[in-house]
Simulated scan of single mutants.
Amino acid sequence: MFIEYIAQAPKEHQKYLKKMYQLLKEELPEATEKFSYGMPTFYWKKNVVHFADNTKHLGFYPTPTVITAFKENLTKYKFSKGAVQFPYSEPFDETLIREMVRFRKTELEELQ
Rank of each mutant, 00 (worst) to 15 (best):
R102W: 05
I6R: 00
P62E: 02
T32E: 10
E30S: 12
Q14I: 02
Q8M: 11
F2R: 06
N47F: 07
V66D: 00
K71N: 14
K56A: 08
T55R: 13
H50M: 06
M100A: 04
K15F: 08
Q85I: 06
F2D: 04
R102H: 12
K56V: 04
Q8A: 14
N54Y: 12
E27G: 00
K81C: 08
T65V: 14
I67R: 03
S89E: 10
K105N: 04
T68G: 10
K25L: 14
F86Q: 00
M100I: 08
Y77C: 09
K25C: 15
G82F: 02
P40R: 04
E72R: 13
P29Y: 12
H50P: 01
E90V: 07
T68M: 10
P10W: 05
S89Y: 08
F60Y: 14
F103I: 01
S80L: 02
Q22L: 13
L17P: 01
Q22I: 07
A69D: 02
K78S: 15
Y43F: 15
N54Q: 11
P91T: 04
K11E: 13
V49H: 00
P64A: 12
P87N: 05
F79N: 14
T68W: 08
T75R: 15
K25W: 08
P87Q: 05
Y21F: 14
T41P: 14
H13L: 03
K78Y: 13
A52N: 05
E99P: 07
E109W: 08
I3L: 09
G38C: 14
Y16P: 01
T75P: 06
M39K: 13
G82D: 03
R104H: 02
K15N: 10
E4K: 11
A83M: 12
P91R: 01
K105S: 06
V101M: 01
L96Y: 03
T55M: 09
K15G: 08
K15D: 07
Q14F: 07
I67N: 04
N54I: 07
L96I: 05
T106A: 11
E12K: 13
Y21A: 10
P87D: 04
E99Q: 11
P10Y: 04
K78E: 15
V49S: 00
H13N: 07
N54E: 09
N54L: 10
M100D: 03
Y43L: 09
S36T: 13
V101E: 01
F70D: 02
R102P: 06
F60A: 07
K34L: 13
I67C: 08
E110Y: 07
M39H: 09
Y16Q: 10
Y16W: 11
L111C: 08
L28Q: 03
I3W: 06
L74H: 09
F2M: 08
H50T: 02
K46D: 10
P91I: 02
E4M: 09
H50N: 05
F79I: 15
T55L: 12
L74V: 10
V48G: 01
E27D: 06
M100W: 05
E72S: 14
L23F: 12
A69G: 07
A83D: 02
K18C: 08
L111W: 12
Y5H: 04
L28V: 11
K19S: 13
Y61F: 14
K78Q: 15
M100K: 06
A7C: 09
K56S: 13
Y61W: 07
E33R: 13
T41K: 03
I6A: 00
T68S: 14
P91Q: 00
K71V: 14
I97N: 04
K34M: 09
L28R: 04
